[in-house]
Design a protein around this nucleic acid. Sequence first.
RNA 1: GGUCCCAUCGUCUAGUGGUUAGGACACCGGCCUUUCACGUCGGUAACAGGGGUUCAAGUCCCCUUGGGAUCACCA
Length: 466
Amino acid sequence: MSQVRLRFAPSPTGYLHVGGARTALFNWLLARKQHGKFILRIEDTDVARSTQQSVDAILEGMTWLGLDWDEGPFYQSDNFPLYKEYVQKLLAAGKAYKCYCSSEELEAKREQALKEGGKPKYDGTCRELAAQPDDGRPYVVRFKAPQQGTTSWVDLVKGKISFENAELDDLIVQRTDGTPTYNFVVVVDDASMAITTVIRGDDHVNNTPRQILLYQALESEVPSFAHVPMILGADKARLSKRHGATSVIAYREMGFLPEAMVNYLVRLGWSYGDEEIFSLEDLIQKFSIENVGRSAGVFNTEKLLWLNAHYIKNGDPVRLAGLVTPFLSERGVKPEGGPDLVAVVKTLQERAKTMLELADGALFYYRGDFAYDEKGAAKFFNAETPALLAELLGKLEALGSFDLAAIEGVFKAICEEKGIKLGQIAPAVRLALSGSTASPGIYEMIEVFGKAETGKRLERAIAAIK
RNA sequence: GGUCCCAUCGUCUAGUGGUUAGGACACCGGCCUUUCACGUCGGUAACAGGGGUUCAAGUCCCCUUGGGAUCACCA
């Protein structure tokens, strides 16, 4: 069997949408799994709405997710001559005809039909017209679709789907201005690129019978189709901006990791037993289009967040340090000169659900001029505190090796000597070091700060209490 | 409205005729603990409804209901 060829064919009229990203992911996965090719094609036949900026945004999104392509990006706008040629072929073979109806006329007929409860399909006025000499009258080219019989296919995710040809009308393949239309272009491209499997959103199932008919008219092999369900918002309506972010890149900006996004997206509609965590490598091995569900799924940020937290928790601190840096500079913090960022990240990994939270959590390490949490100060800073902190400071400074165990030893010693509990000193230290009542572990913070900075902060607190 | 598709906890899902209907997120409790988290243990929670078929139906068929998609010289 020859190798599979799949494609992702976004139209460059906006950002890479999470739904599009999932479609791209499924295509990519299948191509990789079956050692086939993954092709990127930009569907920009609508010249007015397509922008290079959108193309860049889409490529950026795919690259961020780790989806690379073997061929392309191809631009449909480069293929206009090819489409023209195919239109001529259809015309010559009597499989298409020129239609002189104006769009105003058609619009009126449609409304009329709709009003009378009929079908708003083309009435076939020009269908049987004899070939007309080109006298300058504007025309579109319509595909002469069969009016009897049924068209069906076995969808890789939905099973057998059939349509009565009588329900279909003669779609326009070439506009008045000579440019080709979507349904036609997709077929010509998929055929000429020898695409074997088309995975796309199920908003395309209604286009599929027309496209199959077109393949047949063009005498091309019909690829297999897999229509994956839509992604819905919490109210079960098609996911849109009003449900929150829909752009993949927006998720990066909100501090999500690409592996979390990929993992979330793939599990939305696909499953592998009880497993939840999948890397791209796992997926190449485990993914199969047969296990994609047939029903639409609701995009659930909570679960994405959980996955993101998982990947942050288990991520490489060096990489995370690199990723958090831009978020820190947005907050006016540059780690140079402060505690080692990698060490800082390690203390925050299990406490952050997003890189944004990680950045916020790291701020106090690099800012020594914070105000102490009011309630915390009222509760944990008291008359005894300065002496205790001073005692602690002295013992810490006397320490030889400044590691976790040694630091913990100091606290133990103080508690024993003073006959107090850890709870009588720890919260004050936490407040002194971080300004907050919620922070990483005290010993960890002290180790990360080192003697000098720990000393500075302890002194500052002592002074503040007095 | 026509056509097409879909239907298991709130959400993502497992389930392919015989299960105490399983897992995950979220939620609620216990434990762990220097805080917050992490972790861990446990709990609440679902087969949309009605007819069939069958010894047996979440699983097969039909209808109803509900949801979604699409009906452009957009893609």
